[in-house]
Structure formats: C-alpha cells, structure tokens
Amino acid sequence: MKSKIAEAIKLNREPVAILWSDQKPEDAIQFKEGRWGCVISLLSQASKGKIAAFDEKTCGCVGGAKGLGFKDYESGEIEHFLSDGEKCEREGEFYKKNPEYARKFIKSLPDIFVSTEYVIFKPLSKVEANEEPKAVVFLVNADQLSGLVTLANFDRPTKDNATIFFGAGCHSTIIEVLNQGLSEEPKGLIGLTDPSARKFIDQDLLSFSLPYQRFLELEDEVENSFLTKETWADIKERI
C-alpha cells in the first residue's frame, strides 16, 4: 500500500501500520520473553522496513503492555515510579508531581484491549490487501508535522483536529490513537514527547498518528489540498 500523504510530505521513512493479528509474520522481529525493551525502538525499526510483533509476554515493559493494549497497570509501584520514586528499586521518573496525580493519569488512559494474540507493526508498503490496519503512524520532522496538522484540519471547519496528550510514547502512538478511532470525529495525535521514549528515536522526530479510517479520508484529500500548492512546494524543497 502506497501513501499519497507520505509522498506529499517527502517522508524518508515508511508510515507504520498498526495491526491486530492471531498470526505472527515469519520475518517479524520481537523482544525476548521477560526481557525489557521499549516499544518505540521497534516502531523506529518498522519505519525503516522491518516488521515487529508483540504479544502479552513480549511487551518490553509494563508501560508497553498498557500502551499496546494487552493489560492494565497494576497499582502499588507504578504511581510512585511516575512521580516521587518511593517504593521503587529504580529512580522515579518525576513526570507527575505526586502519586495521586499519577494514579489519576493512569485511570484516564483508554480502556483499549487487544482481541488477538499479537500487535503487529508493519511498514505500510507491506500491508496486504486482506489486512486492515487499526492505525497509521508517521515519524516526522517539524516541517512534515506542520503539513500533517494542517491536512488534519483541511476537511473540517473546526480548528482542533490534531492534538497532543501527555503519556508514554506507546500511549500516544497506539492506544490513544485507537481510542480516537471510536470517535465520530477522530483527531490526529502528535506523540513521542515522552522523554523516556525519545532515547529510542532520532532527535528531530515526533510522531503523528491517525486511526486507519481517518488516514484513508485524508489520503483522498491530498490532491485537492495545499499539499499541491506553491507554499508547500517551497517547504517540501528543503525537506
């Protein structure tokens, strides 16, 4: 599957399709069971042409288990890890002022759970005709992000059709995007602002994610939009 959007914004990486499946692709890369790993590191690999797979035992971390949609956080330690670092064997992240704020944040996350054995990251070009992704993730620089935010607002009269949430990198690229897919007017999500995830992505990149049906809608708008006009041509030339 080719993307008009990717071509129009001069994307030098593949858009990544998020799929649910009961079959693991034979050539998929995957974390070893019980070993720590960041989901975003495999998202980056998928944008470079690899296929990645996750199941409940190979999520990489407890945040990845929630971000991928396999299971909820267990309370007790996580609210301290996100805040004051107490009751933790490792240093706390101090992303929330106190454990109570962290608990409320955790409760605010979408209740999106996988109904299949695997979550698959595939380069969009490798998605087969019989497959329907749940979402599409673009890894973009500032110029490309400006184009995607503008495109997300092109076919609606409103101004808030792209947004950004606090959360782990896998929250912003997966479960929050899948949750948007349940909305009547889904938004595009800017992500990878999580400092812990940024270590696994190039320093000039953020993510822009769309529920699959919204992605298809915007694919159909490319040729009628600013992406074919002079202002964007000037920006595209320097990308």
Rank of each mutant, 00 (worst) to 15 (best):
W232I: 07
D202G: 03
I51A: 09
L178E: 12
F81Q: 09
E217P: 00
L19R: 00
F166Q: 15
N12H: 09
A152T: 07
F226E: 12
G64P: 03
I18S: 02
L218T: 06
A17N: 04
K71W: 06
I174T: 15
I112G: 02
K24P: 00
K96C: 04
W20F: 15
H80M: 10
L210P: 00
S3D: 06
I51V: 14
C170Y: 05
D111M: 12
C61V: 05
K32Q: 03
Q213V: 08
A135K: 01
E132D: 11
F138G: 06
C61M: 05
I78S: 02
V16N: 07
T173K: 11
D22G: 08
T158V: 13
F113D: 13
I174H: 15
K71P: 01
F154E: 15
I120S: 08
S146M: 11
S146P: 01
E86T: 01
D27S: 08
F200M: 12
V16C: 07
I190G: 02
E79G: 06
K32S: 01
G64Y: 09
L205G: 13
E219C: 10
G147V: 14
K104I: 08
N12A: 09
K97M: 07
I40E: 13
F70M: 13
L42A: 09
F105Q: 11
L192H: 05
I78L: 07
K229W: 03
V140Q: 05
Y95P: 00
I235E: 12
E132Y: 03
L68Y: 05
N12R: 10
L145R: 07
L216S: 03
Q180L: 09
P110W: 07
E93F: 04
L189I: 14
F165T: 13
G37Q: 01
K48D: 04
E14M: 10
G76L: 05
E100Y: 05
N153R: 08
K4R: 07
F154K: 10
F70A: 14
D22I: 04
G37M: 02
D72W: 04
E91Q: 14
S3Q: 08
V119P: 02
D72S: 12
